[in-house]
Amino acid sequence: MAEVPLGGEPRALSAPAVDVPEPAAEGPWARLCWGVRAYGFIAAMWIRSTMVYRGSFLMMVAGSLTLTALDFAAIVIMFSHVGALGGFALPEVALLYGTCTASFGLADLLMGSFDKLGTRVRDGTMDTVLVRPVPALAQVAADRFALRRLGRVLQSAAVLGWALANVDVDWSGGSVLLLVVTLLSGAAIFCSLFVLGGAFQFVAQDAAEVQNSFTYGGVTLLEYPPTIFAKELVRGVTFVVPLAFVNWLPVLRILGEDDPLGLPGWVDFGGPVVAAACCALAGLAWRAGLRAYRSTGS
C-alpha cells in the first residue's frame, strides 16, 4: 500500500517497529489478555502511521462518512413518497438502521482486515504471521488498522441519535440497558462473522465475497423492518445465521412491536447469549483453519 500525503508524492508506508510483550502467565485467560494487548499494540502502531498525514486521514474519514450517509439518504427519499414501510415510520426505521450500522461499524473497525486474509493465504505471506510470537488472530485483525472506518461509526451514531430523539418510546432504564447491550452484542456477532469468514478463506483461499455477503449484505438487510421480508428469510436470519439478534428482535421489543415469527418474549433478550455462542464457534473455526493452512509450497 502507498500513502499519499497532501501536496506530495506517494511513498511506501511501512509499519514502524513495535515490541509486543510476551505473556506473563499461562492459561486461557492469560492468553486472551495477551492477545488483546498485542492487538492494541499493533493497532496503535498503524494509528501512529496514519496520523503522519492528518489532512489525508481527515479527508478519508469525511469521504467514508459521506458514502455511508447515502444509504440513509435513500431511505429518507423513500419515505418522501410513502408514509410507512411495513408498518414502520421513518424514526422507527432510523432506529433499526442506526443500531445495525453502529454495531457493524464497530465490528468493521475492529475486524475489517479479515477480508484481506485470502490474499495472505494465496501468496504465502500468512507464513510471516505464524512465525511471529504473537497470536495470529490479533495480528490479522489489527493488520493495517484503518482508523478511517470511524466515518461509518460517526454517521451511524448521528442517525441513531436522531432516531432516539424522534421515536415514540417511553425510555425506561430497562429499555436503555437493552439498547446498549444490543449494540455491543451486535458488534460481537458481526466480529464473529468476520472471523468465520477468515477461517473459511483458509480452505477457499479467495472467499472475500462470500464473507461480504453475510457482513455487508447482512447489515443492508437489517436496515429495513423484518415485516417487509418473507417469513422464510426471517427464519433463516434468526435460526441459521442469527443476524436477527443484532437488532430486529431487541428493537422490536423496545418499540413494543411483535416479531413476525411470534417467538416467546424472552427470545428478544437473547443477544448476549447468541453473541457468546457465535464468538465461541468463530474461535473453534479459526483454530481449525489454522491447522488446515498448508502455505504455498514455495
Rank of each mutant, 00 (worst) to 15 (best):
M1D: 08
E3L: 10
E3T: 07
A12D: 13
D19E: 11
V20D: 02
E26T: 10
G27D: 09
R31F: 02
A43S: 12
R48I: 06
G63N: 11
A74Y: 15
V76C: 11
V76W: 14
I77T: 12
M78H: 12
S80P: 12
G83T: 05
G83D: 06
A84T: 08
L90T: 04
A94F: 03
C100R: 04
L109F: 07
S113Q: 09
D115E: 13
K116T: 12
L117T: 09
L117S: 11
T119P: 11
R120V: 07
V129E: 02
R132S: 15
P133T: 05
A136H: 00
L137H: 01
V140Y: 11
R148M: 13
R152Y: 11
S156C: 15
A157V: 13
V159F: 11
V159E: 06
L160E: 05
L160V: 07
W162Y: 15
L164Q: 09
D170R: 14
S172A: 14
V176P: 12
L177G: 04
L177I: 05
L183T: 04
G186E: 07
S192T: 02
S192Q: 04
A199R: 02
V203M: 03
A207N: 06
V210N: 08
F214T: 07
Y216R: 10
F229C: 01
V237A: 04
V237H: 04
F239L: 01
L243C: 06
F245N: 04
V246K: 01
W248Q: 08
L249N: 01
L252F: 13
D258H: 07
L261A: 00
P264E: 05
V274I: 07
A276N: 05
C278N: 10
W286F: 09
R291C: 00
A292L: 05
S295R: 01
